[in-house]
């Protein structure tokens, strides 16, 4: 899989220049391929948010570089806006950034800033709404009349409408009801499938990470602790505990069961799989 975004030895300090400046992010390197979903986890203040703001050029690294399709994004500082169209960033609680009179106009804000207009703009917005399941009846509604979950979907669609090759979402499902969460998750999956984009998700929710992500990037104290496949990360339960994180709840239950019966596997991280495994456990055992 070829790389779309590559971070090399990135360090960032909010008060660069000061002698004893503390780094919010220190010496982080990783790369993301097309179509990959990366989960970023780490406890509060570990540098997750600072890290993702580097990827679309909202922050400029103190040291190190960010390569987008092999090109340093700060080679031409005047064209940093183009980077922001290619790397879409959805902040936490994006519903608070809505401002237009209609849902359509708000989703069109990003593409409009790219210079699109007329039919092109219209088809761009209609296209993305189809992908993420926002029906046409909503177009002329005021975004402020929608429910919380709907607002969030519109806000995320506003970033997706720019058709970024890398989509970054900071806590996209925090504070939503189960249906709202499912909607957002399927939105993200649809977008990745349709556009082959890489997706980077910051979340505290290990269960969702286990379902969604291909790889996990674990941040701790501004440094990259682990960057590996979901399986390899969640099998290091003790290490995750040490840095204030944990394995998914269902895995914790398997650990407890394992204390009673050493044969029970503890390397299952999603609810569905665990249910399947445990239901078949007795039967399989009888065979063996």
């Amino acid at each position: 899989m070829s790389k779309i975004i590559e971070v090399k030895n990135l360090s960032f300090s909010y008060d660069s220049g000061a002698k004893d400046s503390k780094y919010a992010v220190q010496d982080v390197s990783f790369s993301v391929g097309y179509g990959e979903i990366i989960g970023v986890i780490g406890h509060t203040g570990s540098g997750k948010s600072t890290l993702i703001q580097h990827l679309n050029g909202l922050l400029k690294p103190t040291a190190g570089e960010v390569l987008l399709e092999g090109k340093n994004i700060w080679d031409e500082p005047k064209k940093i806006k183009d980077v922001r169209f290619k790397v879409g960033l959805v902040f936490q609680y994006p519903e608070y950034q809505l401002f237009e009179e209609t849902v359509f106009a708000d989703i069109a804000f990003g593409p409009k800033n790219m210079g699109l207009s007329g039919d092109e703009l219209k088809s761009r917005v209609e296209n993305i709404c189809e992908v993420v399941g926002i029906r046409k009846e909503y177009f002329e509604k005021s975004p402020f009349d929608l429910s919380g979950g709907e607002k969030r979907r519109v806000a995320i669609a506003g970033v997706m409408a720019m058709q970024p090759k890398v989509l970054i979402l900071d806590e996209p499902i925090a504070g939503l009801d189960p249906k709202g969460r499912r909607d957002i998750v399927s939105m993200i999956k649809n977008y990745r499938e349709k556009f082959g984009a890489a997706v980077i998700i910051v979340s505290h929710n290990m269960e969702d990470m286990a379902v969604l992500a291909d790889k996990l990037l674990v941040m701790n104290g501004g440094r990259l602790e682990i960057f590996d496949k979901v399986y390899n990360v969640f099998s290091q339960g003790a290490r995750l505990n040490e840095i204030g994180l944990s394995v998914p709840t269902v895995t914790k239950i398997l650990y407890l069961l394992n204390e009673k019966d050493r044969n029970i596997r503890t390397d299952i991280f999603t609810l569905d799989e665990a249910v399947k495994y445990l239901c078949g456990y007795g039967a399989g055992d009888a065979h063996a």
């Binding site: 909202l58 922001r84 902040f91 608070y96 950034q97 804000f109 990003g110 790219m114 970033v159 720019m162």
Partner: peptide
């Protein structure tokens, strides 16, 4: 600052 960043991420100049 948050809102400014969010709109900048959507290409606001």
């Amino acid at each position: 600052e948050k809102i400014m960043n969010a709109q900048k991420a959507r290409g606001a100049d």
